[in-house]
Design a protein around this nucleic acid. Structure first.
Lengths: 126, 126
DNA sequence: CTGGATCCAGTATGATACTG
DNA sequence: CAGTATCATACTGGATCCAG
């Protein structure tokens, strides 16, 4: 990944820069709420409050922070309708949709191994 | 996922229990270090110190914590060789390997969109 | 409705020292 | 080498209040 490592040439500086950037992106994206937002927004465009309801358990602040972060990375777009009261909609971009595909797989993985894991935990906790 | 929701029947309790378990698993797994460990260990069995070297930036404590958590969930096995000095090896299980496949995709995603993202960030930060 | 700002508690994390 | 325990600290995340 992340550890791309071809090295040896004169572009070492570029490579390590790209690596650290990849790390940074990975750290941004590889967190519970970010992935859950991507997953939820994958199905359809949602407003702030709708999203918050769908996520269940996320705080106002967390949602805002993560949305800003995802917007900054270009994974979603924020559309403000200048009405009153304001109406703001969040939509996944193409990169966001692409990421969503991988999140779907993780969700599928969870469903598939949930039994395994529950059993493993029982054994471990004993 | 996570939001499985068939509902309506008498097994609602079971379903919501499964959902909360799925949530829990997802929270465990969807974090930077856990995924990076899975990814690194995917290539081959490693010892504690090797793993720590490969990850670069992780503290002794964080590594231990995450390894315990992954072991508890049955994503990897911890093999202790009773020699002196001790030798402990960590290997991905089948569920672990399966998860690794999805992490690989995330890594691929990062590589593919790293340019997009860098550009998006520049625009956003202005 | 959306979201920024602030305050504060709880937790995560790192450094260090110690054991087998 | 691997791992635990302890401690100090930074940071995260939640609650609340205010504004457009």
């Amino acid at each position: 990944m992340v550890t791309t490592q071809f090295s040896g040439s004169a572009e070492d500086a570029d490579i390590s820069r790209a690596d650290s950037l990849a790390r940074e992106i990975f750290s941004d994206v590889a967190n519970k709420w970010a992935l859950l937002i991507i997953e939820t927004l994958g199905e359809r465009t949602l407003r702030f409050t709708e999203l918050r309801g769908a996520l269940e358990g996320i705080s106002h602040k967390m949602l805002t922070q993560n949305l800003r972060m995802l917007e900054r990375n270009g994974l979603l777009v924020r559309e403000v309708h200048p009405t009153v009261p304001p109406r703001v909609e969040y939509t996944l971009t193409e990169p966001g949709q692409a990421l969503r595909a991988t999140v779907d797989l993780m969700c599928g993985w969870t469903r598939r191994y949930i039994g395994h894991i529950e059993e493993s935990r029982r054994r471990f906790d004993a």
